[in-house]
Nucleic acid binder design. Structure first.
Length: 106
DNA sequence: GTTGTGACGGGTC
DNA sequence: CGACCCGCCACAA
């Protein structure tokens, strides 16, 4: 765990997100001690570990779904929502209730 | 809710 | 190496 690249650190954190919960890009950035919030998304964009890293559990800090696979709208987003619903995370009008599902690595 | 600006790491040139 | 552009964002106006 000493010399991991930025992206790898992102993956490690994402994997810690419990099923049925979500976190935000901001929180991940804070945990990594950086302020390049977009960098988080950039790292997930590649997401070589789709099977291990549930990047769909990472949403924007305002509760909106954010993006998925490089897309900010379209079928990709629809799939992200579907994955969340599959984990009992309700998505109302493209937004998640953070007060209910947010996981901040307590 | 929308729009603009800020911030910063990664990748590319 | 150094400078440049881009991005699944955040925040203020």
């Amino acid at each position: 765990m000493t010399h991991m690249t930025f992206s790898e650190q992102v993956y490690v954190l994402c994997r810690k997100i419990p099923r049925g919960r979500v976190t935000t890009y901001k929180i991940l950035a804070e945990k990594l001690g950086i302020k390049g919030y977009q960098a988080i998304g950039q790292a997930l964009r590649c997401n070589p570990y789709a099977s291990d890293v549930p990047c769909h559990r990472v949403i924007a800090s305002n509760g909106s779904i954010g993006g998925f696979k490089g897309k900010r709208e379209g079928k990709e987003i629809d799939e992200k929502v579907r994955l969340l619903k599959g984990e009992s995370v309700l998505v109302i009008q493209g937004e998640v209730d953070l007060h209910q599902y947010l996981y901040s690595f307590s």
